[in-house]
Design a binder for these strands. Structure first.
Lengths: 242, 242
DNA sequence: TAGTGGTCTAGACCACGCT
DNA sequence: GCGTGGTCTAGACCACTAC
């Protein structure tokens, strides 16, 4: 029950300072002791306290200004971002205790829809590999997915039979991406969507539009339509950035 | 047009390595030169290259293993999180080029709804300050907000007249929080919600449930209901964590 | 067991920006 | 001007683990 703590000096100092800030002992605007003072207090070198304070500044807990000193930050700047988990649907379904199923509705190569700039970008002047599919949980519709893939960036995709392979999971595992953008919105299911999801027309659905890039090349664009009542996204924020 | 680059040595080395990884010159699994080699290559001390490699490891671009070396990471682990901007509604409305307006519909102290565990937690055995309000863009309904505040954690709130002060913005600026959780879902507007938002009953709405804590104390719980077609959330991921 | 990363030291010079 | 943080050096000892 005793501390099994082989904490590094760095972690001890960081923990000390974080605790003072989070407990309110050092309120927003409070001037943190400077590096020289902390160095003396902990009997360590300046590099060590500098590393701690730099790390705290990166996470936004303190602000550092030359000549002025380090100050406990006001709570909101910067913390306006929270971590949103990207859902991998098979994993998501399994973690909810359901049996996952997949059904490929359509697979073809076609021209991009000119009305969808994302598709045009993925096409890059060529055709796109278009996949329309349905994700199932315990045999019942869970999400509808419309995806286009850039066959120039991902030539292996042309040789894949996606009737048994989930395109999203396959792409995640085989194609490295460096940038992604997600747009989250809500729509009323139209007649086609409602029929495929086996709900009434007009049912509220959560929509995720995701586009990924590798360097400058667009890899894929996907629109996933979830039943609004059966699905939700969770985003969290905890102190220290992690 | 020339490089105005007063880059630090640290940034140069980090940029070099990131470029090689992102360009694919160093593919996933590639063994990055060890610290001694980089030290020689750049003619610098070990601390300098160590700081670079540690930073790259923190962002997930490389993995480091004692005795084995540093390796370019496979793309997906860890990158399953993206940064989601928390919307501050007045700012959000203004940034979309609209005039922001606010209307307090109801303000009272009451018992928490037993069916809502979030309200019970915010209450902590006491009553909650309950606020129901409407956010407007160019005078038209933009979002409906139902909020409860813990009056023990935020006693100043009891003295506030929120008819002119936006509760969310006020809380953000006056109450530091250390933890937050968001749940995003989609609903069909019920009759009351539809009337207040001036849309047809059943219109799809994007819902954000947000709860914040300071330490172990729950501060506030809020449900914001947005028009699904008029609003969306954007989440991005870029390399290097930022 | 030897090579690798993890951590730390005791200095140093410099740039910035309050005062 | 001068105190602060920003960066870097040339070492050091240790822990871990793959070989």
């Amino acid at each position: 029950m005793s501390t099994p703590a082989p904490l590094t000096l760095n972690q001890r100092i960081r923990g000390d300072i974080e605790a003072r800030i989070l407990s309110g002992e050092w309120p927003p605007g409070y001037r943190v002791p400077n590096e020289h003072a902390l160095m003396a207090q902990y009997g360590c070198s300046r590099m060590t306290v500098n590393k701690v304070l730099s790390a705290l500044a990166e996470t936004g807990l303190i602000q550092r200004r030359r000549r002025a000193g380090s100050f406990v930050a006001r709570p909101h700047p910067h913390m306006e971002q929270v971590a949103l988990e990207i859902p991998d649907i098979p994993v998501e379904v399994a973690s909810r205790g359901h049996r996952y199923g997949f059904e490929l509705l359509e697979r073809k190569c076609r021209k991009p829809a000119r009305a969808l700039p994302q598709e045009v970008e993925v096409a890059g002047g060529h055709t796109v590999l278009s996949l329309r599919s349905l994700h199932l949980a315990d045999g019942r519709p869970f999400a509808l997915e419309e995806r286009v893939i850039n066959p120039v960036a991902v030539p292996e995709a042309l040789g894949m039979d996606f009737s048994c392979t989930v395109p999203g999971s396959w792409l995640l595992q085989h194609v490295p991406w460096t940038r992604a953008q997600h747009r989250i919105s809500a729509i009323n299911a139209d007649a086609t969507q409602a029929q495929r999801l086996q709900v009434a027309t007009g049912t509220a659905c959560l929509v995720i539009d995701r586009q990924t890039w590798r360097g400058e090349a667009a890899i894929t664009y996907v629109r996933q339509v979830f039943l609004g009542e059966a699905y939700d996204l969770i985003a969290r924020f905890s102190p220290g950035g992690r």
